[in-house]
Amino acid sequence: MLNDHLRRHDGVLTLSQARLMGMSRSAVHRRVRSGLWRQCARGVYFVDDRPFSDAARIRVGVWSCGETAVASGLTAAWWHSLTRFAPNVVEVTMPRNGSGRAPRGVRLRRRNLASEDIVECKGLRVTSRPLTVLEAAVRTRDGAKIMDRALQADVALRDLWRAQLRNNGRYGSPSARVLLQAASDGARSTAERLLLRLLREAGITGWQANYPVGRYRVDVGFKGPKVAIEVDGLAFHIGSDEFHQDRVRQNHITLLGWQVLRFTWLDLTEYPDRVIALIKSAISM
């Protein structure tokens, strides 16, 4: 039992877990004194016959805060494989009435979470994927990418909105709402507004929003150089019918002598300088 637990939990166990497997407190202490086990925090141990991995460090950080603690923020994002690198500081959320202090290397936040926002993943209590996406997306420069990848994979937009509404008022809630609005049905209009703001800030003139080209309208049109700009919202999904109609539309505009530039929400938020440079190059030809 013990070896199986250690294999599945990165070599980390708590005193209560050891007791459930039939070990006495004195047996645990003997292993610590002999150097076989390392005490990492009060009641949390690491069996020192393997590398102390990032996963082990995170387990220790969460379990050291008690049975009601959950990994959250960027820590939960890494645990859910939403990000590539484990954060240096372990982020933990526990109920407001929970007892205990954050040990070194742990950032502790006290907030009551709904049961829907807590899951067990690989033997560790963590925030659910929807709440994790919302919290991680506002904590890093690549936040829009985190939300985009999650939406393109297995997280439903409605579940993100539900998690947002259950946790209104938390740190980063307003910023998460902006991303959610960009991912909703109004994504195109949100992306369009962002594009127009970038054009104004760059001092680019001579364009018109919602410009008519043939029997269609493009998001932004430059009449003189005949440059049309189209934007897609966050997590842009398109079915086969929509894909076909979109290509018919773009081909029609191109045959009228217009150059079409297409940008995504991620282009506008993550690479605005590149977007502006391409537009300037196109309208100067």
Rank of each mutant, 00 (worst) to 15 (best):
D4H: 08
L6R: 09
L13D: 01
T14P: 01
T14I: 03
T14C: 01
T14F: 04
S16L: 00
S16T: 13
Q17P: 02
A18F: 09
G22R: 00
M23K: 03
S24T: 14
R25H: 04
R25E: 02
A27H: 03
R31N: 12
R33C: 01
R33N: 09
R38N: 03
Q39D: 01
G43S: 09
F46C: 05
V47N: 01
D54Y: 07
R57D: 01
R59H: 11
V60Y: 05
G61K: 01
V62Y: 03
C65Y: 05
E67G: 06
T68K: 12
A71R: 00
A76G: 07
A76F: 05
A77V: 06
W78L: 02
A86V: 00
A86I: 00
A86W: 02
V89F: 00
V90D: 10
V92Y: 01
T93K: 00
M94E: 07
P95D: 00
R96S: 07
N97W: 12
A102R: 08
R107D: 01
R109G: 00
A114S: 12
A114W: 13
I118Q: 04
V119Q: 13
C121R: 15
L124Y: 08
L124I: 14
R125L: 15
R125H: 13
A136F: 13
A136D: 05
A137D: 02
T140L: 03
R141P: 08
D148C: 05
A150K: 07
L151M: 10
Q152H: 15
Q152I: 03
A153C: 04
D154F: 04
D154E: 14
D154C: 08
D159M: 06
Q164C: 07
R166D: 14
N168Q: 14
R170M: 11
Y171R: 14
S175Y: 14
L180E: 09
A183G: 13
R188S: 05
L195C: 05
L198G: 11
A202H: 13
G203D: 08
I204W: 02
T205Q: 12
G206F: 04
A209P: 15
N210D: 13
N210P: 03
V213K: 04
V213E: 11
G221R: 05
G221F: 14
K223W: 11
K223N: 11
A228P: 09
A228M: 09
A228W: 12
V231N: 13
G233E: 09
L234P: 07
A235T: 05
S240P: 10
Q245C: 07
V248N: 10
R249K: 14
Q250E: 12
Q250C: 04
Q250S: 13
N251K: 12
N251Y: 03
H252C: 08
W258S: 05
Q259C: 03
F263W: 04
T264R: 12
D267G: 14
D267H: 15
L268H: 12
E270P: 01
Y271E: 14
D273F: 07
I279H: 10
S281L: 03
A282V: 00
M285P: 00
